[in-house]
Amino acid sequence: MERSILSVFLVLLLAISAQTRAADEDWKLVSDRNGIQVYMKHNDNSRLKTFRGVTRFELKDEYSLVALLNDYPSYPKWLHFVDSAEEFRRTSPLKRWLRFTTQLPWPLADREAVLEADVKVIDDGKKNQQVVVNLINQPDQLPPNNDYIRFPEMHGILGFKRLGDDQVEMTYELILDPGGYIPAWIANILLRDAPYFTLERLRRIVHKPEYQNHYYDYLDMLHGPGRPDTEPGN
């Protein structure tokens, strides 16, 4: 009986491992420049592709990233194609509802996105904590706005992982349907550029002085609560 259970367990492990490898192989490298890799994945059920950007850089204070994410007026400076960002509701610091507006190149009409931001902290037990912000499309959470076309579909992931030696890995993944009439090839070009420019700007702006020396007790990352050399945040 024990051998039978062990055999089933090993089969399940092998199946999960094979699925993970297959999922990783679905991502194709489309750009590698300036220390930023951009990958693409295509789903046969969608006319659009999913793009993921990954970069590694030095960041001694991980709370500077939280401070940046809390600074909504700064979003147009680093989040590609975003013209404004605002929070219109929250149930906790880790679950918020946001509205973004975008400025697209002429002759395309401007868009807006209504999203739920759900933050998760993942600990692998080796002090390599990962913070993942899931952006989930919630287009019905606000009344229609005649000045914008609302994204009918959008999902994004912004992930942060501490690697050690003051190195971090940032991941930005994006899939969306812009709505209205935009040819798929134009939408895919816009999507392809978004991860690169977002990560390239973010890794520069996060080092600005106004984002340093903060502490957020709802994201107790590595340093533990009550850091005396930092300021409490929202």
Rank of each mutant, 00 (worst) to 15 (best):
Ile186Cys: 08
Tyr39Phe: 15
Leu219Gln: 06
Tyr218Trp: 15
Asp124Ile: 06
Val132Ser: 05
Leu190Lys: 10
Gln141His: 15
Gly226Gln: 00
Ile182Glu: 00
Pro228Cys: 05
Asp124Glu: 08
Asp193Leu: 09
Phe51Gly: 02
Asp123Asn: 10
Trp185Thr: 09
Asp140Ala: 13
Leu176Arg: 00
Tyr196Phe: 14
Val133Cys: 10
Gln37Cys: 10
Arg47Trp: 10
Asp177Met: 11
Gln19Glu: 12
Ser31Ile: 03
Val119Arg: 07
Lys161Met: 07
Gly224Met: 07
Gln130Cys: 12
Leu191Val: 04
Ile175Phe: 14
Lys60Trp: 13
Pro228Leu: 04
Arg204Val: 15
Ala23Ser: 13
Leu219Ser: 03
Asp44Thr: 05
Ser4Ala: 14
Gly179Lys: 00
Glu200Gln: 00
Ser17Gln: 08
Asp165Asn: 11
Glu173Ala: 00
Leu13Tyr: 00
Leu163Cys: 09
Glu169Ala: 02
Lys95Ser: 11
Glu58Ser: 01
Lys120Glu: 12
Glu116Trp: 08
Pro93Ala: 07
Ile157Asp: 05
Trp78Asp: 09
Asn70Lys: 09
Lys127Leu: 07
Asp110Phe: 14
Lys127Met: 06
Leu104Arg: 08
Leu191Glu: 04
Asp193His: 11
Arg33Phe: 05
Pro232Asn: 06
Tyr148Ala: 02
Asp165Glu: 10
Leu29Gly: 01
Asp110Tyr: 13
Glu116Gly: 12
Gly180Ala: 04
Asp217Glu: 14
Leu68Cys: 00
Ser4Lys: 14
Gly35Ser: 10
Tyr196Trp: 06
Leu219His: 07
Asp147Trp: 01
Asp118Met: 09
Arg33Glu: 15
Asp166Gly: 07
Asp24Met: 06
Met170Thr: 04
Leu190Ile: 15
Leu13Phe: 03
Asp229Val: 04
Asp229Gly: 02
Leu48Arg: 10
Gly164Met: 06
Glu25Gln: 09
Leu199Pro: 01
Pro139Thr: 02
Thr101Ser: 05
Asn134Phe: 14
Gly233Asn: 02
Tyr63Thr: 09
Glu169Tyr: 01
Thr91Leu: 03
Ser74Ile: 14
Pro183Gln: 03
Arg96Gly: 05
Pro144Arg: 04
Lys77Leu: 15
Gln130Val: 11
Asp140Leu: 11
Glu200Arg: 00
Gln129Lys: 09
Met40Glu: 13
